[in-house]
Simulated assay, not measured.
Amino acid sequence: MNKKYSIKDIAKLSGVSVATVSRVINDNGRFSEETRKKVQKVIRDTDYHTNFSAKNLRMNKSFSVGILVPDISNYFFANVVQKIEKILFKQGYSTIICNTARDEKKELAYLKMLESKGIDGLIVISGAKAFDISKLKTPQKIPFVCIDREPKDKQNTVFISSDHYQGAVEATNSLFEAGCKFPIIASHSRTSSSSSYRLRGFKDALAKNNITYNKSKNHIVLDSDNITKKLNQFLELEPQIDGIFAINDSIAINVLSALLKIGKSVPKDIKIIGFDNDPQDIHSYPTLSSIKQDTDKIAQVTVDNLINLINHTGITGESITIPVSLIQRESSK
């Protein structure tokens, strides 16, 4: 049977103190790069594994973080979750990813499950309603961070969001700059803080270009059914439309496909731009212009703030806005 090595064995074989080995394992405190490499080599050679159960009891931590996501099939959500998981793993935390499918009962069930598992922190991504952690038995014990979802009590968390408003302004302005005179916005029927900011940005961009927003003339709601029929009927009523800002890339791709089916040329007849910069955008025909969210920064800022809250060094009540960027492709030129 292979020998089970203790942290004392690792310290002795490395020629350093137990405290130094602990600092290297937890990547916390002072030690030289040479010491790090020496200790890590001994750990690899001995196949040493930290006794997490003992460590958890000693530190009163589970080293786990829960992530609530409304739709894991959505590219933006999946991309952010993947990057958050990668950063957390490097810092010694495991993640429990819960796909709520935008179901309030399912979300509450997941929250109670995560609470029972003693998670150290929680990340909440998007959602129609303000997030309310007070539904749990001991809400004050779980530090949490919200991404693109307004918390009910902002004083006890950190709210992180892309600049959805500015992204919508830039997207709409790019249509005007490309020669559009009558742009509209295409959205789904679901509400969220991010979609409301995008709608507001669109309205303000219209106003700055001397157009008064009219819901019946400047806004089309497109859910999954009969998109081509609905869009065609809308264009028959409003034939002057020459630009479309889609509230996300999923809608934009569906609109692009529908326009081609009804005989509209993109971008000659109607220009279109989306939001999220999905990988599919470069494979559409024509390629889709979009607003890019900085998922690397969103993930890093989220983890940094959550870890600080877990370690009682963070500041709550903050709202952090991450800049976005305009990606011009064929569909809006």
Rank of each mutant, 00 (worst) to 15 (best):
K41H: 04
S196H: 09
A168D: 04
D120E: 11
D204F: 09
F77P: 02
I25F: 09
D120I: 13
S284L: 00
Q91E: 14
V18R: 14
F202T: 08
K137E: 15
A128G: 14
G274L: 02
K264Y: 10
K90E: 13
S196T: 08
I123W: 11
Q280F: 07
V145P: 14
Y75F: 10
H188P: 05
N218T: 02
S284T: 12
Q91W: 06
E177F: 03
H283Y: 08
K117N: 15
T95W: 08
S265F: 00
A171G: 07
I123F: 14
N308A: 09
R58N: 05
L136Y: 14
F76C: 00
D242T: 03
E330C: 01
H283I: 04
C180D: 04
Y5D: 13
I185D: 07
V80M: 05
T313P: 00
N74P: 00
N305R: 06
L222W: 02
E318M: 12
M113K: 14
I220H: 03
L306S: 08
F131T: 14
K268S: 01
K333A: 05
T212D: 07
D148W: 05
I185F: 05
N26A: 12
T35G: 03
F245Q: 01
R198Y: 08
T46S: 03
L136A: 13
M113T: 15
E236P: 01
R58S: 07
F234P: 05
A19I: 12
N226V: 02
